[in-house]
């Protein structure tokens, strides 16, 4: 089991609708991601990259195929079992940050730990620690509305990593940000990958941002068209 890859998609398809109006968002995809990798999934709109992300993130179930996470078959799991997988092994970063409004940065970061059943003091400490990792310890008590887009996204990253996940799934993490801030965010993600050994799976359509990844996957029409491991630019 220790040798099993972290993420293993085999023959995954995801079909929306039935019959003639059926849409194959994912068409027989094979993909393996090793622990510690940083992959970027790219492709035009409607290429299925978000669907791939949702399947990998255990938010969605494939219509057919096998998905093994850490050797566990995910495809047959119930909603609640998949929720447990997300709770313990996955962290999410979204394009729109998705922080709870009128809730301080610290409380936002604490949220996943509530579902992990940690005590209050423990949660506080872990949340403060995660905020420190993204360089926002002095903004802990600010509401999201008092933070800039980049800061909000960093809070979201802190929330994703506070539960010690094995994978961070980032869906267009820089989509709402200007170039300078985007670079900051990518550097935070890159740092987490290099220093903490976190596996990162990112969806983006910005070629510049994809350069931070070690491996690039191109999707078109629900299929993987290109899969290249890239030599890191210094």
């Amino acid at each position: 089991m220790a040798d099993a890859p972290l993420i293993e998609l085999a023959g995954i398809s995801r079909v929306y609708g039935e019959g003639e109006i059926a849409v194959r968002a994912l068409d027989n995809i094979d993909l393996t991601v090793e622990a510690g990798d940083f992959i970027a999934i790219m492709g035009p709109s409607g290429s299925g990259k978000s669907t791939a992300m949702n399947v990998i993130g255990c938010l969605d179930s494939p219509t057919s195929g096998h998905y093994r996470f850490n050797g566990i078959e995910v495809a047959g799991l119930s909603q609640d079992q998949r929720a447990l997988l997300r709770r313990h092994y996955l962290g999410f970063v979204f394009q729109g940050y998705n922080l709870l409004p009128r809730t301080s940065a610290l409380h936002n970061v604490e949220l996943p730990l509530i579902y992990k059943g940690l005590g209050r003091a423990e949660r506080r400490a872990a949340a403060a620690d995660a905020l420190r990792k993204v360089g926002l310890e002095d903004r802990a008590h600010h509401d999201p509305s008092a933070l800039s887009g980049g800061q909000q996204q960093r809070v979201a990253i802190a929330r994703a990593l506070v539960g010690n996940p094995q994978v961070i799934l980032a869906d267009e993490p820089t989509g709402n940000l200007d170039t300078k801030t985007s670079v900051e965010i990518m550097e935070v993600l890159e740092g987490l990958n290099e220093n903490e050994g976190l596996t990162i799976v990112m969806v983006t359509h910005e070629t510049d941002m994809a350069q931070y990844a070690r491996r690039l996957i191109w999707m078109v029409d629900g299929r993987i068209e290109r899969d290249e491991r890239k030599r890191k630019a210094a």
């Binding site: 938010l59 929720a83 997300r86 709770r87 998705n98 949220l111 996943p112 579902y115 539960g163």
Partner: peptide
Amino acid sequence: IRLAIGAQ
């Protein structure tokens, strides 16, 4: 958000 971060 709650469901995504692991709420059942």
